Each structure stands twice: as structure tokens, then as C-alpha cells.
Amino acid sequence: MRPIDRIKKPLVLRPPKVMSATPCAVEVATLFNCWRALSVDSKQCADSAKSLMTCMAAQGKSTGSSRSVDQINFWLAKARRKKQL
């Protein structure tokens, strides 16, 4: 491959590799610790369970930003193979 051919390659957009904390991990750990200290059916662990449910409900409402990046990558790959857009 000639050096000029390497320069003419199309740009590819890839999502950034970011390590993020697991959502609701603190709430899950709190609930498990409460269950371990008391019992699974304890009424004192209701607050921990309630906070976990609210966190999980909030995580269900995510944005579609990663989907748009996937679509861009799909179209860039298709253009790279020189197929008709």
C-alpha cells in the first residue's frame, strides 16, 4: 500500500471507551448488606429496596445517543465498502 493511500482512508467514528461506574451499585450493596445483617423479609430494609427501585426506574429512561453513534458507524462502513447509500 502506498503512503498516499493510507492518508485517503475515510474517518471512522467510534464511541469513546469510558469506564463508568455501574448504575445503582451503591443501592444494591446497601440492600444486600441490610439483608445480610437482618433478614430478607425485614421491614427495616424497605427504605433500601425503595431507593433501589427508584434508581432502576431512572436508569430505564436512557437516551439513544449510543444508537446514533452505531448508526453513523454503520453508514461509514457501508460507504467504505463503496456500496450505494
Rank of each mutant, 00 (worst) to 15 (best):
13 L>P: 01
40 V>G: 15
50 K>M: 09
57 A>L: 15
57 A>T: 06
71 Q>R: 13
33 N>K: 11
72 I>P: 00
11 L>D: 12
23 P>S: 05
17 K>Y: 08
72 I>Q: 00
61 K>W: 06
38 L>S: 13
58 A>P: 02
27 E>L: 03
13 L>K: 07
65 S>R: 15
83 K>T: 09
22 T>S: 06
28 V>F: 01
41 D>F: 05
58 A>D: 05
44 Q>M: 06
38 L>M: 10
51 S>W: 00
16 P>Q: 08
78 K>G: 05
56 M>Q: 08
78 K>F: 07
18 V>L: 08
83 K>N: 10
38 L>A: 11
74 F>A: 04
77 A>M: 14
32 F>H: 09
24 C>T: 02
80 R>D: 14
67 R>I: 15
9 K>D: 04
70 D>H: 10
39 S>E: 10
4 I>M: 12
36 R>E: 04
49 A>V: 00
54 T>L: 09
13 L>R: 02
15 P>C: 06
67 R>D: 04
72 I>K: 01
17 K>F: 08
79 A>D: 09
24 C>L: 00
71 Q>T: 14
75 W>N: 11
60 G>A: 12
77 A>G: 09
64 G>P: 06
40 V>R: 06
82 K>L: 11
69 V>P: 00
45 C>E: 02
23 P>K: 05
54 T>Q: 13
51 S>G: 10
70 D>A: 15
18 V>W: 04
12 V>T: 15
56 M>R: 07
50 K>T: 14
35 W>D: 00
44 Q>F: 03
12 V>L: 14
70 D>Y: 12
60 G>E: 04
46 A>I: 05
22 T>M: 15
32 F>G: 00
23 P>T: 03
27 E>S: 01
36 R>G: 04
10 P>G: 10
56 M>S: 01
42 S>D: 13
23 P>E: 07
77 A>H: 12
72 I>V: 15
29 A>G: 09
1 M>Q: 14
29 A>F: 10
25 A>I: 10
65 S>K: 15
33 N>E: 07
83 K>R: 15
72 I>M: 07
45 C>S: 02
44 Q>R: 08
24 C>H: 01
16 P>I: 05
70 D>F: 11
48 S>K: 01
47 D>G: 12
38 L>I: 08
44 Q>N: 09
17 K>L: 11
78 K>W: 08
68 S>C: 14
61 K>M: 09
51 S>L: 04
22 T>V: 15
67 R>L: 15
